[in-house]
Write a protein that binds this DNA or RNA. Structure first.
Length: 424
RNA sequence: GCGAUCGUGGCGAAGUGGUUAACGCAUCGGAUUGUGGUUCCGACAUUCGAGGGUUCGAUUCCCUUCGGUCGCCCCA
């Protein structure tokens, strides 16, 4: 039995990889327009980073991390998300001291979570995310959200739902938490075992429970929105107003609780509404994390960001039946007939490539017919035919595969002929 | 971690307790000694995910295992 790919990972082969390249390119263009700069951080970090940032009561930390001990006896974890590393780098390199603030960063790269794979969920998956550090202006919350929306809309997606919520600041969260505990505690034995634990660890997450969704106490549970102090409420108002002014539609859902501990104030999520999507419809998640930098040992720094998965983006595109405009086909295929022509084709192909023409030739000693078939399959615009009698006259026949017309061109002007005609 | 379902050539897929494992696509060769996308002919699985068991005999029955897919929990 040959060795197989590890569970939950995938090889992205030619034919599929073009879609990834296209999306990554779009993401980079978008970030350039919004003035976010790329940051590349390691794929593994000290485990401690995620314990401190993501939160040790979260599912990510409790059951999904790829953690191992290296030869130096250090506990290392393959990054399950990108924010922690980005903020770590921001603090470590004292980027808060850089002249241009806020610091606006983006990343594209693999993340790792040990889970059972299913549609839209992998053990290694690719996230594109942005982080804006150093500003507590609600306008930048709106900017981050708008960039996310623009990413999807720019690719042609339409069936999107943006959900936002506010988790409030420390003070608001504490009073809400107390209210939640008081609300659920008397009847907590009616809830699932997870929720019973959550009452102690993080009562907010009870609201997110899928099992106990129908419990009457869920309906009457205190909403965070009623516990926001004046400052938090005002902040959330401003975010909403900015979004409205940008023409971005959204829905406020006070039950939106993000899965990571570091969030506060604005939390948001984009889901796909498309028919036939799998069970997982969350395309992107993000939020504000004002205490995170400090948690990691840096100065108190406000921050906000999002992360989206390319895998799910591709699923959404498929669900909406969107074809990406990928450039296919090569400019030219050189068909050689006979030994001398074959030798000549080697140098010709080389010259054409130097002229920036995409060109292929046969390396399997195929018959002429098979060479033409190959040219056809590669969607070549032209076939350059080199035969012995052409060679003697220092010409080649060039056939346009779309029109089927053919003409003779002097050997030394093939490149210019192709360049002139390839875009028609 | 739990559950459902599947696993036959490069891909899609039929099939049976028993001497040659359909078919379609793709590929390669030929019809057409230097011209593609159409057509016709031909070639292409000592083998049915792996290991073990039952049996005179298993791809087909049983067990184990690995893997895919989908779902639960949770998330991107």
């Amino acid at each position: 039995m040959s060795i197989q790919i590890p569970r939950g990972t995938q090889d992205i082969l030619p034919g599929e990889v073009e879609r990834w390249q296209y999306i990554e390119e779009k993401a980079r263009e978008l970030c350039k327009r919004f003035n976010y700069k790329e940051i590349r951080t390691p794929i593994f970090e000290h485990t401690e980073l995620f314990l401190r940032s993501v939160g040790d009561t979260t599912d990510i930390v409790q059951k999904e991390m790829y953690t191992f001990t290296d030869r130096g006896d250090r506990s290392i974890t393959l990054r399950p998300e990108g924010t922690a590393s980005t903020v770590r780098a921001y603090v470590e390199h004292k980027m808060y001291g850089l002249p241009d603030q806020p610091t606006k960063l983006y990343y594209i790269g693999p993340m790792f979570r040990y889970e059972r794979p299913q549609s839209g969920r992998y053990r290694q998956f690719v996230q594109f995310g942005i982080e804006a550090l150093g500003s507590a202006d609600p306008a930048i919350d709106a900017e981050v959200i708008s960039l996310a929306m623009e990413m999807y809309k720019g690719l042609g997606l339409q069936k999107l739902k943006l959900i936002i919520n506010s988790l409030g600041d420390q003070e608001s969260r504490i009073s809400h938490r107390t209210a939640l505990t008081d609300h659920f505690a008397p009847h907590i034995e009616e809830f699932c075992s997870d929720c019973q634990k959550r009452l102690e660890t993080n009562p907010l997450r009870i609201l997110d429970c899928k099992k106990d969704r129908e419990h009457p106490l869920m309906e009457t549970a205190p909403s965070i929105l009623d516990y926001l102090n004046e400052e938090s409420a005002h902040y959330f108002q401003k975010v909403q107003r900015y979004l409205q002014s940008m023409g971005i539609e959204f829905e406020v859902d006070s039950r939106l609780v993000r899965g990571l501990d570091y969030y506060n104030h604005t939390a948001f999520e984009i889901m796909s509404d498309a028919e036939g999507f799998g069970a997982i419809t969350t395309l992107m998640g993000g939020g504000r994390y004002n205490g995170l930098a400090q948690e990691i040992g840096g100065p108190e720094t406000p921050g906000i960001g999002f992360a989206l998965s390319i895998e799910r983006l591709l699923l959404a595109l498929a669900a909406e039946g969107i074809e990406l405009p990928l450039g296919k086909g090569i400019d030219c295929y050189v068909v050689a007939l006979g030994e001398e022509a074959k030798d000549a084709s080697v140098t010709l192909v080389n010259e054409l490539r130097k002229s920036n023409i995409t060109v292929e030739k046969d390396y399997l000693d195929k018959k002429v017919k098979a060479q033409f078939k190959a040219a056809d399959r590669l969607e070549a615009k032209f076939v350059v035919i080199l035969g012995d009698d052409e060679l003697e006259r220092k010409v080649a026949s060039i056939k346009n595969l779309q029109t089927g017309t053919q003409e003779e061109v002097a050997l030394d002007s093939i490149a210019s002929y192709l360049m002139e005609n390839r875009d028609r």
